[in-house]
Design a protein around this nucleic acid. Structure first.
Length: 804
RNA sequence: GCCGGUGUGGCGGAAUUGGCAGACGCACGGGACUUAAAAUCCCGGGUUCGAGAGAGCGUACGGGUUCGACCCCCGUCACCGGCACCA
């Protein structure tokens, strides 16, 4: 009989979906396991082989967990709001909701074709009003708790998408999505106060099992730094406050710098004698994008503020104040103290402007570059009461001094900024607020949610930068929920990150119409036990969703502080030549083609065998065929009716080892070596005819990886039920023992021979066996044994030296 | 520049974390079956020298620790990812 994968895969998928073998049961007595993958964006291109890697991995884990007796929640959904769909809709004059519906249908078909054991009854779609009702509800809670606010600020503006971008969406000065230029633009935007959660987002990482590089990347992104705020008196009267992490260098401050956006510039206008030059510099800086301003190795530029001077509180000396765009308004206070001896940027500025450079930490050569080391090697000099101390001691000493003197105080700063939450686009969740001339911003009452996205004629972006919704006057004009007077709806929509910030909660109870999910479901399923996803989401989705979840925890809406107990990450699938897959390179592999040619099981096995799951891996068409060959070999050996329900004597050792190895490899995401182990087992069966019991074990081990062929062979062999619903086999360590061990024999640390020895042979026995070996005897000739090192059951190393 | 990561045959990758480097697969070579080819099955293989038994050299490079190092330590180089005038 032939291995007809197309027929078999269709047959078993129909059966799994009709019998709902992937269904999760809220409240079951079994232990629960919640395995999560990042739900896909349903693009027009359809499923990519890149999706297949993490999806197959988590499917294998979840299938194994079910066999281990867990009540598994393994859900799927679609993150369907967003720009590509909207752009496609505009270009082809099809409504985004229709584009979305078609794309979801296509994705669903493809996901089912790969045999993933999702609980399809829990499928969510972020563009479904029954879903985004709750996205809007969460926004309203944020608003009520003063975590959403409107602010006019310079924002990143994509010139092509005609839309505001979050900092995270700007990559190398261009739009992450379309690659167009991003400029700065003043706009009034809804903001979320993620910065209020900065400390908890860092500190609570200690309580979760995330891979280390995710934790480090999140910490770096949040960028907490412990420093000091210092206040300098000025001749203009206004005290000037700066932030520094090196208050120990205060005696070395020889000038001050303000950012071009610093409010004091306007304030000091009359006191500044060269205002024209200052004003011109400021205007020039304003015209530049953030990217231009921060371009690599740019020469320092700046202008002296002629007429105002600051006073160094430590030395009491007057020092000049400059304006320069190397100081950012958005970090710290927008002003810095210049310490050219011990900060490289200050050193460059001082060198260019001929400012004095004072050494206050000994250890470097400040005529050549700034000496920036902060460790114990530096000793304070030219620094009054700090002289002779190490930098390490000087920092707290200075902190204490400035605090006592009233010049400053300790201060923590963060690189993290608040989250720009508005988008001037159509295809997103409407922000459920009404602007009333009398009452200000008023939330839409919760019983009126969802605020539906209105049907519009044109959803094209406007040149003014207003949302397309602003043209819908019927929809925009409404009454104030508070005073009943005429008012206007907010026309901005939410960013794509909104719907994905809480979707894992909705899976727990997806049809609930009175809450994001029932308390019972939240208590039962929380937290997500294992979340696997891409590293590219570490500082966006993963951080945003942790923020929302902590907020929901604070208002009592969810039972855990953290949403995800464990986070792992997979490597990218690259094209055949090791380059990123892209349409322009023409190296994109379509899963449909692979499934058609080899079947879903082959694709699943190959994508897991391709290499280390955590590292990038290049596609190989030849190697796919090798995996098909592996399944063919299984078909041949397992489709034939076998005798004997026990494991065969010849194979039992290898079977037990495989049960152990495959099981532990799945837990550790070492899928490639798990499959290698299965291949070895099949090779073993080709050498020693397997019993029916041997085949049974093989099929169970195979079933998470290649579930269709495993079920078909399971049925052919006449085993009961379905393999995917059978318990994972148990290994017996005592059956895995070799009675005879091959022992490596080293002479002076070099491998010279191997000998066969009984299990657990002692040193004396091993020594005798080694010396009985012809080659070793040759080496030992005329030598004496100085030392013998034995690693039980592994190795004996003889240290020899010539006899005197 | 800073923070992470990686570097092993012709190729993808293994190595119980200090104990026989190269599992498993791809590609390749040889054999069996076949009129022939494909498919399948069996065998082989790091590299150099050697007819051979065998010996030397081998985990990016240079040192070190150790009876013993792909693994630990110090230094260097290359590539990948993230951040980047964050004071």
């Amino acid at each position: 009989m032939e291995y007809n994968f197309a027929r078999i895969e269709k047959k078993w998928q129909d059966r799994w979906f009709s019998e709902k073998t992937g269904a999760a049961v809220t409240g079951s007595e079994k232990p629960k396991f919640y395995g999560l993958i990042e739900f896909p964006y349903p693009s027009g291109q359809g499923l990519h082989v890149g999706h297949a890697r993490p999806f197959t991995a988590m499917d294998i884990i979840c299938r194994k967990k079910r066999m281990d007796g867990y009540n598994v929640l393994f859900p799927i959904g679609f993150d369907a709001f967003g720009l590509p769909t909207e752009n496609y809709a505009i270009k082809n004059h099809i409504h985004p909701s229709i584009v979305t519906r078609d794309n979801i249908a296509n994705f669903t078909r493809q996901l089912k074709m790969l045999g993933y054991s999702f609980d399809w009854d829990r499928c969510v779609d972020t563009t479904d009003p029954d879903y985004y009702k709750w996205t809007q509800w969460i926004f309203l809670q944020l608003f009520r708790n003063d975590l959403a606010y409107k602010a006019t600020m310079p924002v990143n503006w994509c010139t092509s998408c005609k839309c505001v971008l979050a900092n995270e969406e700007v990559v190398d000065g261009v739009c992450e999505r379309c690659g167009s230029e991003v400029i700065r633009r003043e706009k009034s935007q809804w903001m979320l106060r993620i910065t209020k959660y900065a400390d908890r987002l860092i500190d609570d990482l200690d309580d979760v099992d995330f891979i280390e590089r995710v934790k480090i990347q999140q910490k770096n992104w949040i960028g907490r730094s412990e420093g000091t705020e210092l206040t300098f008196a000025t001749t203009a009267g206004d005290p000037l406050t700066v932030y520094t992490t090196r208050c120990d260098t205060l005696f070395g401050v020889t000038y001050m710098v303000l950012s071009p956006e610093h409010p004091y510039l306007e304030k000091w206008k009359d006191a500044v004698s060269n205002w024209d030059a200052v004003s011109a510099y400021r205007d020039e800086a304003a015209r530049k994008s953030d990217f231009e301003r921060s371009e690599l190795n740019k020469d320092k530029t700046g202008v002296l503020l002629d007429g105002v001077r600051a006073v160094n509180p430590a030395t009491r000396e007057e020092i000049p104040i400059y304006v320069s765009d190397y100081v950012l308004m958005s970090y710290g206070t927008g002003a810095v103290m210049g310490v050219p001896g011990h900060d490289q940027r200050d050193w460059e500025f001082a060198t260019k402007f001929g400012l004095p450079i004072i050494e206050v930490v000994r250890g470097g050569d400040i005529t050549k570059e700034a000496f920036t080391l902060k460790d114990d090697t530096g000793i304070m000099v030219n620094s009054g009461f700090l002289n002779g101390m190490t930098v390490k001691d000087a920092i707290p000493a200075m902190k204490q001094w400035v605090t006592e003197q009233g010049f400053g105080h300790p201060k923590t700063n963060y690189k993290l900024r608040d989250w720009v939450f508005s988008r001037q686009r159509y295809w997103g969740e409407p922000i459920p607020l009404v602007n009333c001339p009398k009452c200000g911003w008023v939330p839409v009452p919760e019983d009126q949610l969802p605020v539906l996205l209105p049907e519009v004629e044109s959803y094209e972006p406007t040149d003014t930068g207003e949302s397309p919704l602003s043209k819908m006057t019927d929809w925009v004009n409404t009454t104030c929920p508070h005073c009943g007077g005429p008012a206007q709806r907010e026309t901005d929509t939410m960013p794509q990150w909104a719907g994905s910030s809480w979707y894992f909660l909705r899976y727990m109870d997806p049809k609930n119409d009175s809450a994001i999910a029932s308390k019972e479901a939240l208590d039962y399923w929380s937290p997500v036990d294992w979340y696997n996803g891409g590293m590219e989401h570490t500082t966006l989705h993963l951080l945003y969703s942790r923020f929302w979840h902590k907020f929901l925890y604070d208002i009592g809406a969810v039972p855990t502080k953290e949403p995800y107990a464990k986070r792992t990450s997979h490597g990218m699938i690259l094209g055949e030549g090791g380059e990123k897959m892209s349409k322009s390179r023409g190296n994109v592999v379509n899963p449909n083609d692979i499934v058609e040619q080899y079947g879903a099981d082959t694709l699943r096995v190959y994508i897991m065998f391709i290499g280390d799951f955590t590292k990038a891996a290049a596609w190989s068409g030849k190697a796919v065929a090798g995996c098909k060959r592996f399944l063919d070999r299984i078909w041949v050996i397992a489709s034939e009716r076998r005798e004997g329900d026990e494991l065969s004597k010849a194979n039992e050792k290898e079977v037990h080892r495989a049960i152990q190895k495959v099981g532990s490899d799945i837990e550790e995401m070492k899928f490639n070596t798990a499959i290698a182990q299965l291949m070895s087992l099949v090779n073993q069966f080709y050498a020693n005819e397997p019993s029916r019991g041997d085949i049974r074990a093989l099929l169970l081990l195979l079933s998470p990886f290649a579930p269709h062929i495993a079920e078909e062979l399971w049925e052919l062999q006449g085993f009961e039920g379905m393999a995917c619903e059978t318990a994972w086999p148990v290994f017996d360590e005592s059956k895995m023992i070799d009675e005879v061990k091959t022992i490596a024999v080293q002479v002076n640390g070099k491998l010279r021979s191997t000998v066969a020895a009984p299990l657990d042979a002692d040193q004396q026995t091993l020594l005798e066996l080694a010396l009985a070996d012809r080659k070793i005897a040759g080496y030992a000739e005329g030598m004496e044994i100085v030392k013998t090192i034995v690693v039980p059951n592994k190795l004996i190393n003889l240290i020899l030296k010539p006899k005197k």
